[in-house]
Amino acid sequence: MSKVYLSYNNITSPLGFDSETVVKNIHHQKSGLRLINDKNILPVPFYSAIIPSKDVSNDFERLNISGDFTRLEKMMISSLSKVIKASNKPLTDRTGLIISTTKGNIDVLDKNSTFSKERANLSTLGKVIKNTLGFKNETIVVSNACVSGILSVAIAKRYINQGIYDDVFIVSGDMVTKFILTGFNSFQALSDTLCKPYDKDRTGVNIGEAIASVLVTNDKNELPNEAVVILGEGASNDANHISGPSRTGEGLCRSIESACKEAKVTSSDIDYISAHGTATLFNDETEAIAFNKLDMGDIPLNSLKGYFGHTLGASGLVETIIGMHSLYNNTLYASLGFDKHGTSKPLNIITKTTTKPLDIFIKTASGFGGCNTAAIFKKIK
């Protein structure tokens, strides 16, 4: 099999509308999380990272595309169009399109929405993105809870290795909506303070929003500086609970083992872990157990939820793109919000942004329904 690369990329978030700006803000430990007091969404104040609607509209207007689009569609089209333009790739019958999201246009179900309720169908979202940007093939929609973003990378790699596509564009995204916030709040996972992944005093998750886009390709020519090779990936479902992860970390362990086997690496080859780190009691504990089972407890680790909150279907791809830039910049970025160890097994949390030679990182994610995914990436020398 030929090498498959993660190539041109874009992040749209409260920290910026391009990957470089976002990474620069993370380097300076700037967070997009803010206290929101809107009783129309929740009866109590909450912390979240929300992209200003005015900025969304301004970014979309530069495209000069006519039509009536939802807020999510505007952000996805804008982000993905930047990656298509940067890559200079023609959209042919050898080009795939993947959308990863957990809820899509869920906001159109609001009684005040002016959009047809059909717009909430994920297949409809796929058609809008495909037709607006001119893709030839039908859209693949990946909606597998919070592993969707990184699972899409694994799926794109497999399509390319199977000879179905040469290039696959991925766009991932979810929004902060009343439906999502009340859902997390209903099972007491939503924190009323800034999230603190892996910290002893963590009280839960902050929900944020972001869009991430990337090109996955087998073309080794004209790659951007931060491009990486996808060495291996794996996915496993522990089937433990509709919302709770396995207490033994079994599904995550199997995902990591599968990724390492394909990549032909061991824990000693991995320079750092870009973990899921939602700041919920069970998720962080499960990850600590899984990493230690695999002799990965000493590997430098961060969670980026303190910068964006949990961006759901976008989180895995957003954090992977930051990992790409981390390798290129030879920089470990601090895990914002961490102060005191709060898991039963030790973890090597990155507490200070540090310059260090880097070559390989692993991205992990876990989600509702017991889904787990891991992928391993290597710098191109």
Results as ranks from 00 to 15, higher is better:
4 V>R: 00
7 S>T: 08
8 Y>A: 06
12 T>H: 14
13 S>T: 02
19 S>T: 09
23 V>A: 11
27 H>S: 13
28 H>W: 11
29 Q>N: 12
30 K>C: 15
30 K>Q: 12
34 R>M: 13
41 I>S: 02
41 I>M: 14
41 I>Q: 03
42 L>A: 08
44 V>I: 14
46 F>P: 03
59 D>C: 07
62 R>V: 12
63 L>N: 10
68 D>A: 09
83 V>N: 04
87 S>D: 01
88 N>T: 09
90 P>I: 00
90 P>F: 14
92 T>F: 15
111 K>P: 13
112 N>M: 10
115 F>L: 05
120 A>I: 03
121 N>R: 10
125 L>V: 10
131 N>G: 01
143 S>D: 00
145 A>F: 06
148 S>K: 08
151 L>Q: 09
153 V>A: 12
154 A>S: 07
155 I>Q: 04
156 A>K: 03
160 I>V: 00
163 G>V: 11
165 Y>M: 06
165 Y>R: 05
172 S>Y: 04
181 L>G: 02
183 G>L: 06
188 Q>L: 15
195 C>V: 07
202 R>Y: 08
211 I>S: 00
214 V>S: 11
214 V>G: 05
218 N>F: 15
218 N>Y: 15
219 D>F: 06
223 L>V: 02
225 N>A: 15
229 V>C: 12
231 L>V: 08
233 E>D: 13
240 N>C: 07
242 I>S: 10
245 P>H: 05
246 S>F: 09
251 G>W: 01
254 R>Y: 09
255 S>D: 13
256 I>M: 13
263 A>V: 05
275 A>D: 05
279 A>D: 01
300 P>K: 03
302 N>Q: 12
306 G>C: 03
310 H>R: 04
324 M>G: 06
324 M>K: 00
337 G>C: 04
338 F>H: 04
340 K>W: 11
351 T>M: 10
355 T>C: 14
358 L>I: 09
359 D>C: 08
360 I>W: 06
368 F>W: 04
370 G>C: 08
